[in-house]
Write a protein that binds this DNA or RNA. Structure first.
Length: 260
DNA sequence: AATCAGCTCAACCGCCAGAGC
DNA sequence: AGCTCTGGCGGTTGAGCTGAT
């Protein structure tokens, strides 16, 4: 017996989301919180696959999302994390508040990958592509704007500890696939990296905006929603004035949306 | 102004793991 | 134990945008 498709393919809309669809989804999630995604499109009156709704929410509509390009610090962190975790974008994204796995994946593929290659660094292994490329293109790593702070050989050693296999043909084979190991704070000199890589970072709510926790918990959402990016997200829909959300009922929300 | 090439990123697809029955 | 369902993940695609010619 074959597996059922995640949704009825007939009558399911694809492609870019409209402002109206976004509004419906937001309204629904505000009222009911995140529940069974499969049921969301039906209940919210959307002709979309539940999966598509989840994706739209997590990658675009979620209030705690940052917008815009990754800054240098974030970019550096992504590189460091990628060296440890490989293409596990969701794990990497978990360490960058307000960023999605999709966003990081895209940024990696469009920006970082090219930068690394240009620098003579293999974006997969994080090792020099070849000695000549490095010496010709990046005679001094510290000169490039990314300002690598991590010795990749050191990183590899960190990640290899306990599982070393010197006969491995490719560097990645031994690389940190056991994240419980690799993500624990280690002997890195950089305390910031250590902190961000630690589990406690994710539990630390100090970067959140506590003002609206009660409001959002009421809707079953995470407490980090009160963020200017949320307004940006709504500005995308034409809802620039969203600061009054605390006291706004859904009719008012509809009115605001109607201005779009 | 028109065309083309390259780039960006939202969205889709297929697969997998875990939970529940 | 085995099956189904659901959520989540990573890879890929393609429409739209931008800059170069």
């Amino acid at each position: 017996m074959g597996r059922q498709p995640c949704c009825d393919k007939l009558g399911v809309k694809k492609g870019p989301w409209t402002a109206d669809e976004d509004k419906k989804l937001i309204n629904f999630l505000f009222i009911h919180g995140q529940c069974c995604w499969r049921a969301v499109p039906k209940l919210a009156g959307l002709r979309r696959c539940g999966k598509s709704c989840r994706l739209r929410w997590t990658n675009y509509l979620r209030p705690d999302l940052k917008r815009g390009l990754l800054n240098e610090a974030e970019e550096q962190l992504v590189i460091d994390l990628h060296a440890r975790l490989g293409n596990r974008w969701s794990k990497i994204a978990a360490r960058l508040p307000g960023r999605t796995d999709n966003e990081i994946k895209n940024h990696w593929n469009t920006h970082i990958k090219k930068k690394l290659i240009k620098m003579g660094i293999d974006p997969v292994t994080h090792k020099p592509l070849n000695k000549e490329a490095v010496t010709h293109e990046t005679p001094n790593h510290t000169n490039d704007h990314l300002n690598f702070s991590i010795d990749h050989e050191e990183l590899k050693k960190d990640c290899d500890h306990g599982t070393s296999n010197e006969n491995s043909s490719t560097p990645t084979e031994n690389w940190p696939i056991d994240e419980s190991q690799s993500l624990e704070p280690n002997n890195d000199d950089d305390p910031l990296i250590n902190y961000i890589l630690s589990e406690t970072f994710l539990d630390d709510t100090s970067w959140e905006f506590p003002a609206a926790r009660e409001v959002y918990s009421e809707f079953g959402l995470s407490s980090s929603e009160e963020n200017s990016s949320w307004l940006l997200g709504y500005q995308d829909l034409g809802h620039g004035d969203f600061g009054c959300f605390n006291s706004m009922d859904m009719n008012e929300l509809d009115n605001l949306a109607g201005k779009h």
